[in-house]
């Protein structure tokens, strides 16, 4: 894997030509039927999802969508989901559970949309209940972090049995800009933030927040999409094969243990 600074990887993760959820769905799946709407009040274009076949097997596939042309980017709020988006995710994964379909999620978002309506419609509740629902699913869940993974808005799609990350994808508690603004009151120190945040795929693997890092073409994912797709395809086949042998209750239990263990080494005992 190429040696790059964390800031360089952040730039690659945000590259405008980087393949996104529509490309992954279009290339790796057949017969995709998009399912729209949260059945409550709206349809969030920042979340794309539905039923599809993966190597002939029915699955539920979903992910965040940033959009390409400017109109589409605006409609998708640059990939930042609203509560309607998370409630659409909930609707889709409930169906996955009902029809015993594995869930495959592609994550590439700066985070949940911080807007007035989003708050009024319960952004916090929408993310919280998505986390809770995903944690208890008894079908296999595989999440692929393909670009930016920002905050709780990304995590909502990342409560999986296996979390895969592309080599130049990043995943963090907040954007480097937001991090620098909060901690140092200076958003301009974002590059410095990238280095201390431990947000690269390799960092996440070490911290056990990711299970596998998928190599990208030397110049980054966008320079050779065909090669990238082949890598992701093979990784998904491998992950699903392993998880499909696991009993439903054991899948939920494994997912619980996976997240239960995170941060165990970050805690110590000491008398106050």
């Amino acid at each position: 894997m190429a040696e790059r600074t964390a800031a360089e990887r952040v730039a690659l993760a945000r590259h405008p030509d980087r393949p996104g959820t529509p490309e992954f769905i279009g290339t790796l799946f057949t017969d995709f039927f998009e399912q729209r709407g949260d059945r409550l009040c709206g349809d969030d274009r920042a979340i794309l999802g539905g039923a599809a076949l993966f190597h002939g097997r029915p699955v539920t596939v979903l992910g965040t969508r940033k959009g390409r042309a400017i109109e589409e980017r605006v409609a998708c709020r640059f990939g930042m989901p609203s509560p309607e988006g998370y409630r659409k995710v909930q609707r889709l994964v409930r169906q996955a559970e009902k029809f015993r379909r594995p869930v495959i999620a592609f994550v590439d978002t700066a985070g949940a949309y911080p807007g007035r309506e989003a708050e009024e419609h319960g952004q916090g509740e929408a993310i919280a209940s998505t986390l809770a629902l995903m944690s208890g699913l008894t079908v296999p869940v595989v999440s692929v972090f393909t670009g930016e993974g920002g905050s709780g808005g990304a995590l909502a799609l990342g409560v999986a049995n296996r979390v895969l990350m592309l080599e130049n994808a990043v995943y963090s508690v907040l954007s480097p800009e937001g991090f620098a603004a909060i901690l140092w009151k200076d958003a301009a120190r974002a590059e410095e933030a990238c280095e201390v945040m431990k947000l690269t795929a390799a960092d996440l693997l070490e911290l056990k927040a990711a299970d596998e890092v998928l190599p990208e073409p030397p110049g980054g994912a966008h320079t050779d999409p065909a090669a990238l797709m082949a890598t992701v395809d093979a990784a998904l086949v491998r992950s699903l094969a392993a998880l499909s042998r696991t009993a439903p209750a054991a899948l939920a239990a494994q997912r619980y243990r996976r997240f239960r263990a995170l941060g165990a080494a970050a805690v110590r005992k000491e008398r106050a």
Partner: peptide, 26 residues
């Protein structure tokens, strides 16, 4: 909100606590 100094491990506590509450609730 999050404890910035603990980065991704702070974020992971959201999933961990939500999963525990879900189990308790079920």
């Amino acid at each position: 909100g999050a404890r910035m100094q603990e980065g991704i491990l702070s974020l992971m506590q959201m999933a961990k606590t939500a999963a525990a509450v879900e189990r308790f609730s079920r």
